[in-house]
């Protein structure tokens, strides 16, 4: 797992993808922070929450080639015939993408320090918001990785993942359309954006943590199965 994690993480920065994603996040986070700073807003949870839509688009770019490219170039032969478990391969790839995603939020540490110099507010609201965003990211990364395992084309993986992300993140918008109260309730409770909302209100919401972790674990498991299935078909 360690070798694959290292290779995948390095691969993000031997191509422009890693740099571009970091630059885009840094730019938007910086923009949101400077706007909220100009308005004298001391709450930087809104800065972190502000990039949810960006994540729905950017994470598929991070995950699109994770497995599809291995299948296309047959490099999966090197991985699968090595004495490692398939779950190790998948986890290595997952954590590499996750680490890049986490680094995207590095500037928020500086933002928090700047705010902290002026206002004495608790650190928990910032930590919860960041933690929530990382959980949301982990869930989206695992979904993107699973979709990447279904195709040999990174482009198709990216397009599909973006479509799926729009649905899972903004599912609550469908809730208003659904006439059935059960369905609208279901959509609302499943939407990532609503689940994430709780973290921005300085609440450590255990059900939401469980929800995101379950989704991430489920799609990591499905990715492992998808690779296993290829061997058995």
């Amino acid at each position: 797992m360690k070798a694959i994690f290292k290779r995948e993480f390095k691969a993000y920065f031997t191509s422009p993808i890693g740099y571009v994603i970091l630059a885009v996040y840094f730019f938007f986070l910086g923009l949101l922070f400077s706007v909220s700073y100009a308005y004298g807003d001391s709450d930087i949870t809104s800065v972190i929450g502000g990039v949810t839509l960006l994540s729905a688009f950017a994470i598929p770019i991070l995950t699109m080639r994770l497995i599809s490219e291995d299948k296309k170039n047959k490099t999966d032969q090197a991985l699968i015939t090595a004495p490692v478990k398939i779950s190790g391969i998948v986890l290595g790839k997952f954590f590499a993408a996750f680490l890049v995603f986490a680094i995207c939020f590095a500037p928020t540490v500086i933002f928090r320090a700047i705010i902290g110099a002026y206002v004495d507010i608790g650190i928990t609201s910032y930590l919860y918001a960041l933690f929530g965003m990382l959980l949301l990211g982990a869930a989206l990364i695992s979904i993107g990785m699973f979709i990447s395992s279904l195709t040999e084309s990174p482009v198709i993986a990216a397009i599909l993942s973006i479509a799926v992300n729009m649905v899972v993140v903004y599912m609550s918008s469908f809730a208003q359309m659904a006439k059935n109260s059960f369905l609208s309730g279901l959509f609302e409770s499943m939407a990532f954006i609503d689940r994430y909302q709780n973290f921005t209100e300085n609440i450590f919401s255990v059900p939401d943590v469980v929800y995101f972790v379950t989704i991430a674990a489920a799609f990591i498991f499905l990715t492992v199965r998808s690779l296993e299935k290829k061997r058995w078909s």
Partner: peptide, 10 residues
């Protein structure tokens, strides 16, 4: 294997 499984960017 028949096609060497190489990561060409390395």
């Amino acid at each position: 294997p028949e096609i060497p499984p190489l990561y060409v960017e390395m």
